[in-house]
Structures are given as structure tokens and as C-alpha cells.
Design a protein around this nucleic acid. Structure first.
Lengths: 135, 135
DNA sequence: CCAGGATATATCGGCTGCCGATATATATCG
DNA sequence: CGATATATATCGGCAGCCGATATATCCTGG
């Protein structure tokens, strides 16, 4: 289960659509805003992602409007889309947490006085204890 | 600053190395473990990532051991590697949080009784209030 | 004793996916 | 009238992930 992780671009598109339906260009602006300008989703990327997400049933065309002579094609999350986004957010949070925790562990072990580490270590510690094993 | 986001594979390799130096095959096992079996980093992916991370100065070859006739090449995070991993974890946590928040917003607005959504809506909502704006 | 699996390294071709460039069209502002 | 913003869409190149494959050693089971 859990399927596999989506691409970064897909994640941000889904996130931009999470609160309300938006059209392509609006998604572009919204992604930039919600990421505080850090993520710049490109036009060349957008439509491919939109097509893929539609094919995967995570979004659907909500409606089309003509605003000031310009076509606006609004997309909306499906229930599957919400679920997929939620699952991905969970995975990201878990990954971020794991990284943070491990960095702290590494700091504790490796930061103070490295004891030269043995020049050409050839001793067989054999059982370092890692490789837990409740696979 | 902040550079751009690293790939998912790179993130997991750095995370696996965050607590202690490990060799390639060990990284493979560790990534599977720390992700609770959800992430399966492939052998064909690993060495490319290792080379790229080394070229980028995020990891370095720590030492080489011969264990039971088999070579083990241990890699270790550099200070830049720790910083990059930390920054990426931050970005992921932020993204996950944003997604979660927006899903909640969408639920509040769209979950109960969808009122047919107006056939050919032409009204300009104009100022939904998002658009944070300290860019 | 030998086959198979785990350990451990490495390479390559193919496919997916992101991005820059480009194209088209309208409205607005200087 | 040209530049900019809005809004759509396509295409070619390049980066990166994965399956397959190769090599080599050690251990376990039949």
C-alpha cells in the first residue's frame, strides 16, 4: 500500500489546489507565494503535471471561465487527490523528522574530539550492532 | 541562498549518513529501515547519488575497510552536508505543514453540501485574503 | 560439494520528468 | 505603439531514477 511518492512539482500543484480550485497561471503564482518565493514552478512543467495528475485521477477540471477575454481553466482536487496529498505530507513530515533526529545523534557522537579514527583500520569488529533486523 | 532542493534519493542518503559513516550497501539497508520499509533506494541509483554528493562536497570518503574479503567504502557527511540536510528537512517540514493546513481549509469550505457551484460563474472573488505578502 | 542467497562493489540503457525557449492571444499602462 | 501581465500550450535537451547485468566473496542448506 501507500503507493509511491509523487514528484515535487506534483506535490506543490496539489497543495496549491488544496484550499480551492485554481487555474494554471494561478497555481504558478500560488505555489510561489505559499513557499515564500522559494519554489518557482515553471510553465513548461505545469501542464505536464496537470495532465499526469488528471490521468491519475487526483485532480479534475472544475470549470472554464472567460475572464476579460482570457480563458481560465480551473482544476480541483478529487477525494483521491486529497488523500494522496495528505499521505505525501505525512511522508515528508516523517522524513524531515527522521533527518532532524539523526543530525542530532550525529552531533552528539561526532562533534566533540574525533580520536584520530585509526589510520588504516583493518580490525574486524564483526558485530557493530547496527543492522538491527526486524525486517 | 538556500540553494535549490536536492533529489529525494540524495536526501535519504544524507539522512542515512547523518548519525554515523556507512558504506554503500549499508546505506541501502539503513534507508529501508529508517523509512520503515517505505523507501527502497536502488543499487542503480546509489552510486550516481554518491558521486554527485561527493562532487558537491556534501559527503566525503571516510575510510575503506576489507571485511571478510569484501571491500567496504565508508562515506561521511561534511559540515556542508549536515547544513544541506538540515535545510532540506526544514523545507520538507514547511511544505508538509502548508499542505496539511490547506487541506484543512479546503475541507472547511468544500466538504459540506456543494451548492452546484454556479454553472457559469463570472464573479471575481478578487481578494480571498491569502497572498501573505512579505516577499 | 555445489547451488543459492546475502554482502558489496560498479556500469549502462531506457524512460520519466523538469526546465528553458518559444508561440499565440488579449488587456492594460505608459 | 511597445512593454508587461495574464493565460494558454508544445517541444527538445538534460538530469536523474531504475532494472538489468556483471563480478567477487562468504555462508547455509540440501
Amino acid at each position: 500500500m501507500t503507493a509511491k511518492s509523487m514528484t515535487r512539482a506534483a506535490f506543490f500543484v496539489l497543495t496549491a489546489l488544496a484550499d480551492q480550485p485554481r487555474h494554471g497561471y494561478g497555481i504558478l503564482r500560488e505555489v510561489a507565494e505559499l513557499s515564500d518565493g522559494e519554489v518557482q514552478l515553471r510553465v513548461g512543467t505545469l501542464y505536464g503535471v496537470l495532465d499526469r495528475l488528471t490521468a491519475d485521477g487526483l485532480i479534475v477540471l472544475d470549470r472554464e471561465e472567460v475572464q476579460q477575454g482570457r480563458l481560465r481553466r480551473y482544476y480541483r482536487l478529487t477525494d483521491d487527490g486529497v488523500a494522496a496529498l495528505d499521505a505525501e505530507a505525512e511522508r515528508m513530515a516523517a522524513g524531515a523528522g527522521a533527518a532532524k533526529r539523526r543530525i542530532a545523534e550525529g552531533r552528539r557522537a561526532g562533534a566533540p574530539a574525533r580520536p584520530a579514527a585509526r589510520p588504516a583500520g583493518l580490525e574486524p569488529p564483526t558485530a557493530p550492532g547496527l543492522a538491527g533486523g526486524l525486517a
